[in-house]
Computed example of a mutant assay.
Amino acid sequence: MNQPESGLRRGEPGERYDIVTIASSAGGIRALTQVLGGLPADFPVPVLVVQHLDRRHETVIAQVLGRRSVLKVKLAEANERATPGTVYVAPPNRHLLVGAGGELTLTSTELVHFVRPSADLLFESAAGAYGSRAIACVLTGTGSDGAMGVSAVKSRGGTVIAEDPESAEFNGMPVAAVGTGSVDFVLPLVEIAAVIRGLVEARRS
């Protein structure tokens, strides 16, 4: 398994993070609750989430996560603009993408690696729109969704975090992400929120 870089990377003068993207699948509700619950109410950037959900049913994921987070949590809507301190969750059976300035797009294009929404598409769109100002985080889940996306984020100078496969409830997605060699931090679930907070706040100090 490739080893991540040790320690926080320093951004260039004037650079900062402007978007956090998170992906999870099996075991993801518990993991998302842990991460989102560790972010403060005045978190200065939007958070976009892809959690693989049953495509056949409506979901209450926003309400569930919102009860454990001081951030506003909602299902993403087409053509809305992502704002700081809000968590936008991809609706069931819709890909979520983000453009320059935080414009959100929902699409029903074909499945990617058998899933919709796709972490790869979200990460790739964030990489294209935000470059080095993007953070991508891969949490517990089966399969390999997110691996191509984290490579895109890394190639544009962004920062990639993966839950430690050794402690993840389901390690398929973290293993695939780490295997790309594009992950900057491999962390136990309980440490991820603090590192995201530290990265975002350091570039604003």
Rank of each mutant, 00 (worst) to 15 (best):
Gln3Asp: 13
Gln3Val: 11
Gly7Glu: 01
Gly14Pro: 05
Glu15Lys: 05
Glu15Cys: 02
Thr21Met: 00
Thr21Ser: 02
Ala23Gln: 09
Ala23Phe: 07
Gly28Asp: 03
Ala31Ser: 07
Leu32Gln: 03
Gln34Ser: 15
Leu36Ala: 11
Leu39Lys: 13
Ala41Asp: 15
Phe43Pro: 12
Phe43Tyr: 12
Pro44Met: 06
Pro44Tyr: 01
Val45Lys: 01
Pro46His: 04
Gln51Leu: 05
His52Lys: 11
His52Arg: 08
Leu53Met: 14
Arg55Asn: 15
Val60Met: 14
Gly66Arg: 05
Arg67Lys: 09
Arg68Val: 10
Leu71Gly: 10
Leu71His: 06
Lys72Arg: 08
Leu75Phe: 08
Leu75Tyr: 09
Gly85Cys: 09
Val87Lys: 07
Ala90His: 11
Pro92Leu: 02
Leu96Met: 07
Leu104Ile: 02
Leu106Met: 07
Ser108Asn: 15
Ser108Trp: 14
Ser108Gln: 15
Thr109Cys: 06
Glu110Ile: 03
Leu111Val: 15
His113Cys: 11
Arg116Asp: 14
Asp120Arg: 07
Ala127Lys: 01
Ala129Trp: 00
Gly131Arg: 00
Ser132Ile: 08
Ser132Met: 08
Ile135Trp: 02
Val138Arg: 04
Val138Tyr: 00
Ala147Leu: 06
Met148Val: 12
Met148Lys: 12
Gly149Asn: 11
Ala152Ile: 04
Ala152Thr: 00
Arg156Ala: 09
Gly158Asn: 07
Ile161Thr: 14
Glu163Lys: 01
Glu163Asp: 04
Asp164Ser: 13
Ser167Leu: 02
Ser167Trp: 04
Phe170Val: 13
Phe170Gly: 11
Gly172Arg: 07
Gly172Thr: 08
Gly172Phe: 00
Gly172Val: 10
Pro174Met: 01
Ala176Asn: 12
Thr180Tyr: 12
Phe185Ile: 04
Phe185Val: 09
Val186Gln: 14
Val186Arg: 08
Leu187Gly: 04
Pro188Ala: 08
Leu189Ala: 07
Ala194Leu: 02
Ile196Ser: 14
Val200Thr: 10
Ala202Asn: 14
Arg204Tyr: 10
